[in-house]
């Protein structure tokens, strides 16, 4: 297999937010921080769709916002090809305007992402005019092409966003994101607010655009059944840390991180469960990101964890079957398996 063509590279990224404190803490000088993204290194390959999964509070959106340049990281670096986009405490390289032509974001709620006082045509012409790509007359033709790209008829330009249904609105949001021909598209839960019957249309569209325009896509979601359909690789985040990074097929086919498995088991199945079949749940909730425990962040909910897991943070290690996982148990199991295979071949 040839080496992957790395498009965006995130290196040891950390993003902290100060906790609003009361008077007592301020007087005593107590400082607390929310560790939203806590040392994540991750590559986005050119033309792939990387799914970022995890519960609310796992740092998915913060990571995406750092890549989009809406947040300045506290530590670490972000590279796009050979241009540094951000380093500790500063956005570097391109101006905000140039950055918008490289990375674009699609948000969860298409209704609040669109200005309801503007016709769709004006919404879509805005990027061209702001970036002085063309004049107003020329923009009209470009808007029509954009609408066609996302499968909307040209008349849509005359409508207001509230006259469209949720799926059409999300198409308009996608069209706007594509206006500047970005190279990287970040889709933050783009179907969470849509009905099941409409989710498929948007997923098909994102996949089709990725292939046709050779976009690199970061797809944020908490629904693993969607991941299975659309992603090429899966990155699992928990408490701002990367727990597992895996090819999609391997992710659904192998014994991954205990947290990934818990997420998988919690995902509702499309079938009638046996009469008294228990749902497989994991106990507890994601802990507070303010006092992150020293060891494995998942330990408090892990069915397999023991005292050793609480001492040091498990490093992200390559698995024998491919992919990376941050778990002492999985690393030990892999080691035992390779040892076993090695002894076996000797005998």
């Amino acid at each position: 297999m040839s080496a992957p063509d790395i498009h965006v590279s995130v290196k040891e990224l950390r993003m902290l937010f100060p906790v609003k404190r009361g008077l007592r803490d301020r007087v005593l000088g107590v400082k607390q921080w929310v560790h939203a993204v806590d040392g994540v290194s991750l590559d986005l390959h050119r033309g792939e769709c990387l799914a970022l999964v995890g519960e609310s509070g796992s740092g998915k959106t913060t990571l995406a916002n750092c890549i989009a340049g809406s947040l300045v990281p506290v530590a670490g670096e972000i590279w796009l090809d050979d241009v540094m986009l951000a380093r500790a405490g500063a956005l570097t390289g391109p101006s905000a305007r140039e950055r918008a032509r490289l990375v674009q974001v699609i948000f969860q709620d298409p209704t609040s992402a669109l200005n309801r006082r503007l016709r769709v045509g004006s919404v879509l012409a805005e990027p061209f005019l702001v970036h002085k790509i063309c004049n107003r007359a020329e923009a009209t033709a470009r808007v029509e092409a954009l609408l066609a790209r996302v499968g909307l008829p040209p008349e849509t330009a005359e409508h207001y966003s509230h006259e469209l249904n949720a799926s059409q609105r999300q198409r308009v949001v996608i069209a706007r994101a594509l206006a500047l021909e970005p190279r990287v598209l970040i889709a933050d839960e783009p179907i969470a607010k849509l009905d099941v019957s409409m989710q498929g249309q948007i997923l098909n569209l994102i996949d089709q655009l990725r292939r046709e325009l050779d976009l690199s896509v970061i797809f944020i979601t908490h629904d693993l059944s969607v991941v299975r359909q659309i992603a090429t690789r899966v990155a699992v985040l928990y408490l701002g840390q990367l727990m597992e990074l895996q090819e999609t097929e391997a992710f659904f086919g192998s014994e991954g991180h205990p947290y990934s498995q818990a997420l998988l088991r919690s995902t509702p199945r499309l079938r009638v469960t046996a009469e008294d079949g228990e749902l497989h749940t994991i106990k507890g909730e994601i802990p507070s990101p303010i006092d992150v425990p020293p060891g494995c962040p998942f330990l408090s909910r892990c069915p397999e964890g023991d005292d050793d897991c609480g001492r040091t943070r498990p490093p992200l290690q390559a698995r024998s079957a491919g992919g990376l996982v941050a778990c002492f148990k999985r690393a030990a199991a892999d080691l035992a398996a390779t040892d076993g295979a090695a002894t076996g071949s000797h005998g």
């Binding site: 099941v196 498929g200 249309q201 997923l203 996949d207 299975r228 359909q229 995902t267 499309l270 079938r271």
Partner: peptide, 13 residues
């Protein structure tokens, strides 16, 4: 309805 158990892309709509 999306399913974790099978790959059924492109989605039916």
């Amino acid at each position: 309805s999306p399913s974790v158990e099978e790959y059924r892309f492109p989605f039916a709509t």
